[in-house]
Amino acid sequence: MMNLFYGLLTGIVFGFLLQKGRVLRYEKQLGALRLIDMTIIKFMMSAILVGMVGIYAMTDLGMDVLRLKPTILGANMVGGILFGIGWGLFGLCPGTSIGALGEGRWHALFGIVGMLIGASLYAALHPWMMETVLTWGDFGKITLPGMLGINHWIVIVALIVGVVALFRWFEKIKL
């Protein structure tokens, strides 16, 4: 019960910030995919940079917080491309489509119904995927620092430096 309450609270804050960051808009999502407006990249990468510092600080304190999804190259790549194709057509992703409804973008409903059908279609084809795509390049639960064999803070600092340089470039060329 408490868990559901925390979920609702987390969602309300998340939805509020998504709306304030203006990333719930079709224009912002297609803007990034058409390389004319990088708002969603700035938003997303900022969240990732802050989040990874906190998450790894917690693991260093001995907390068992990592919940890694397995790396299956076939599934991540084929599924990723299919998701991307759908994203380019729909212009919203699963989380932002719900938020878009909250700010009156009723057209999100078409894609939401499509996504429910996509989920059902996947459920029907999952047994076949388990024998094919989900066996291609299965590396299990791996992290970038684990794969490179280096301390996670080296990767974190490198990512921060790289992403901040990218942000500065975005601002310089006014994207």
């Binding site: 997303m44 599924g79 989380g95 499509g114 996504m115």
Partner: peptide, 27 residues
Amino acid sequence: GGIFAMFGARLADGCPSGHGLSGMMQL
């Protein structure tokens, strides 16, 4: 687009929230 997006997200086992935000935060 919605059909493709969700089919792909389930095959990949995540969307820009689960893989993008949460996955990348965990490196």
